[in-house]
């Protein structure tokens, strides 16, 4: 079986996707999207973890081979900010939609079709 962290990460991703697929309100879909991004970030970090080792800050106690893999942590730093940026953009677009359509129900936001 896979480890708890992977299980947690995958379930977060699936919950996020579930929200997008089922929820009618745009804001709930955006929340689902950010949950999914958090799940992905958790997955990215847990891929880099090495059991029995500590954070990669090579101060007195920790030598090069007692540290965990630093790269995924660097990647996650970027991925989190990308998640923030997408959510900020999405929320401002949602504000415009509410202002122009008067609703946030996905069924009614369908002027562009066909």
């Amino acid at each position: 079986m896979i480890s708890a962290y992977y299980f947690g990460a995958i379930s977060l991703i699936l919950i996020g996707l579930y929200a997008i697929l089922v929820k009618k309100n745009v804001l709930k879909m955006l929340i689902g999207l950010s949950i999914m991004e958090t799940g992905v970030n958790l997955l990215l970090v847990s891929v880099g973890y090495i059991s029995g080792r500590s954070a990669p800050i090579l101060s007195e106690g920790i030598g090069p081979n007692q540290a965990v893999d630093p790269i995924p942590q660097a990647l996650v730093l970027t991925a989190i900010v990308i998640g923030v940026a997408t959510t900020a953009m999405a929320l401002s677009v949602a504000m415009i939609i509410y202002e122009k359509y008067g609703t946030l129900n996905v069924e009614e936001i369908r002027r562009l079709r066909g």
Binding site: L21, V106, I109, R111, R113, G114
Partner: peptide, 18 residues
């Protein structure tokens, strides 16, 4: 075909991805 596939609803689009 066009009406069925591009029906404008984001949810159905995300269903296509799923």
């Amino acid at each position: 075909l066009r009406q069925a596939f591009y029906n404008g609803n984001v949810q159905s689009y995300s269903w296509y991805l799923a």
